[in-house]
Amino acid sequence: MKTQITVLAAAILMTTGLSAPATAQYPDQTINVMIPFSAGGGTDVPGRFFAQEMEEILGTDIIVTNVEGAGGVIGATQLSQADPDGYSLGFMPVGTTTTQPHMRETEYGADSWEPICLVAQGPMYVTVPADSDIQSIDDLVQQAQDSNVVTAGPPPGSLPHIGQAALAQMLGVDFNYIPHEGINAVAQSMLGGRVHMTVWFADAGERFGLRPLAILDSTRSEELPDIPTLAELGYENIENYVWFGFFAPAGTPAEIVTTLAEACDQAVHSEGFTSNMDAANRQVRYMPTDEFAEFFASQFAANGERLRSLGLAN
């Protein structure tokens, strides 16, 4: 009997504790951070580094879940429909949040989120195989005019695809784009001599021995300072870089967003995060809430515009 009462009391305590999280000090329970891509991948690595620091700063458990599929749309849809109570958050890249909604009828849009902060970014480069005859962008144009240039990357609508399409448009040539499952399959085709060019991150050189020709950004990067911008080579610059942000579903209370934003500031600038990112060869880029919200809105509009001009969105 005694034990039954104890159990009952414990049960009552537990249920009341669970039903009234709003009155307690945030955060007082486990936070779920959703990453819409597979573990160990390009989004997951910075996401997990970031979550690790946030866990320490917020003083609560953080569980990272990978909800994969459809370019991150499955995970983003789940998150957009979650309770905006500050316990369901997401670490999502540019594509999932700003290109997918233009290309297909996603159940979320630009106003489904409370952007909290920008965490990381990665510029992309025009890249060719090490032993390729193409030594410069001029050579690339020449080959496209003389015969054909076979390019490769992830499925249409992905950033590498948009990047090479924008490049073709700017150069006034056509590329023959062959979709692949991901960068690993692309590298296989490039090293096998079936593909001439791709648009990818800085690590393509070190990992696969590919050779970058130019950066798709308005300035040179710290990681590859010898690679020129397109403007330096006498063409128009193209900005095509991936970024990763920290998001809450729309409707999350302002004070929770503030708490998270402050924690994010600390996490991104922490010793642990920067050294981890450094070791993994990834770039940190921080923007506080207001700046990030503005940036997000402009990216959403700009990418929509770009996809429409390339005929990839209506």
């Binding site: 994969e68 599929g69 459809a70 370019g71 749309v73 499955i74 849809t77 290309m103 297909r104 009828e105 159940e107 992830p154 499925p155 249409p156 609508g157 992905s158 695809h161 979709p179 692949h180 499952e181």
Partner: peptide
């Protein structure tokens, strides 16, 4: 699920989760 060659969902009958295959 999503067709890797076009990036578009197939046979998902507008059921969101099916677009992941």
């Amino acid at each position: 699920g999503t067709d890797n060659m076009t990036g578009m969902p197939r046979f998902d009958y507008d059921i969101g989760v099916l677009s992941g295959g």
